[in-house]
Design a protein around this nucleic acid. Sequence first.
DNA 1: ACAAAAGCTGACCGAAGTGTCAATTTATGG
DNA 2: CCATAAATTGACACTTCGGTCAGCTTTTGT
Lengths: 227, 227
Amino acid sequence: MAKKAGPRAKAGEQAGAARGEERIRQRNEKAILRAATTLFAKKGFDGTRATEIAERAGLPKANLYYYFNTKEEIYRAAIRHLIAGWDKALRHIRADADPFEALEAYVREKLDYARKNADESRMFANEIISGAPFLSRADRKHMHDITLEKTLIIEQWVAEGRMRPVNPRHLFIVLWSTTQFYTNFEKITCDTLEKPRLSPSDYEDAARTIVETVLRGLRPGKASSDP
Amino acid sequence: MAKKAGPRAKAGEQAGAARGEERIRQRNEKAILRAATTLFAKKGFDGTRATEIAERAGLPKANLYYYFNTKEEIYRAAIRHLIAGWDKALRHIRADADPFEALEAYVREKLDYARKNADESRMFANEIISGAPFLSRADRKHMHDITLEKTLIIEQWVAEGRMRPVNPRHLFIVLWSTTQFYTNFEKITCDTLEKPRLSPSDYEDAARTIVETVLRGLRPGKASSDP
DNA sequence: ACAAAAGCTGACCGAAGTGTCAATTTATGG
DNA sequence: CCATAAATTGACACTTCGGTCAGCTTTTGT
């Protein structure tokens, strides 16, 4: 199939007037994706109605289908967008950096990213819990490759005696889980902290807790393993 | 409304033949709840069709509506069930216990519970991410109260110098996030560990990692905070 | 200025899904 | 065994929702 969805779906800004070319299309697609992400995050794919997305984007429903062929296409576009931001924070993990400075920077940035992009973060979590039915093999490979690369750096640090021995894959899992929990499970976090909403200072407390528990446990030092 | 849903919805086993009283009803409700939990976990409330639940429970759809008035009622019943298991693992946190033995036992049991009740755990995660629209105030208060109680114990341990200073609420959040991540986000965990499925030994590795990072960081010892 | 392309939209359709019901069968208690 | 309650179910009513379409308006290039 694939018959309509606008006349020129691809072919970015190749030449000619770079000014406002495709301005309208870009603005509307962005509005649709923003609205969709918020709704998908809260209500999931099936729980979100095309009409709702349209309303939130300030467009009539039929207009949605001028830009996208199906609701699923909107969902996939949103997923693609958030996959692109996956590895941002990982750039701190460099072999020539100080392990603990690098890991702390990573934790703080990840926490910050989740806070500032709460909807994306939640939508992603939803997708994974549901078994990642819309993640392409390429998406998963990408995430996997990036992780593997950073894994090797951790192993190197361990080999150099700069950190305690640790399974780097599990370490990343622990770091992901903690940094995403605050945003993804905001409701339960708020209940626990007895706050109506999470403030920046709560995120600061979170960062400190993660650094002082998870990371401190990895600092080299005489073995105090058994009591 | 609320007109049907079986003749005797409540009034457990009060008297008379305790043998097979209400056997059929009990069996069927259980089958429905089990089937529903699995589906709600994977596809969310709106993504799950009443027909699917019925099929999975081995019943015709109309029979579902003999036991429950609405799909929402099924969902609520499932939620109620899993809230009941929330505090199981927390029983290890007792003031007279050794802090690290207690915390390790807690971590291991929580990990184990999540693994063995993956569907419930995922359904719960789904509910929270979506903003906990079906959690009653009482449910939330229950969770909050239990947590508060354990929080005080941690504070006592800190005051006695048996652990490093830590914000107990954040500590619990870190512990929840890590212990639930493996099950809730199984897909991403598998990709990261390069396994098709998680084996018990992977969970053992997870437990060890959590204990050796998160918990080790809390052991008292001379301050090695700054480099 | 004007033609062609892009953008917009109200009205509509068919598929699918929730919940209903009346009629039938099965279990239970005396 | 019979009467009454419980359990079962196929067929159906009603609604909602994803997606279409034909014709309209606006923008753009020349």
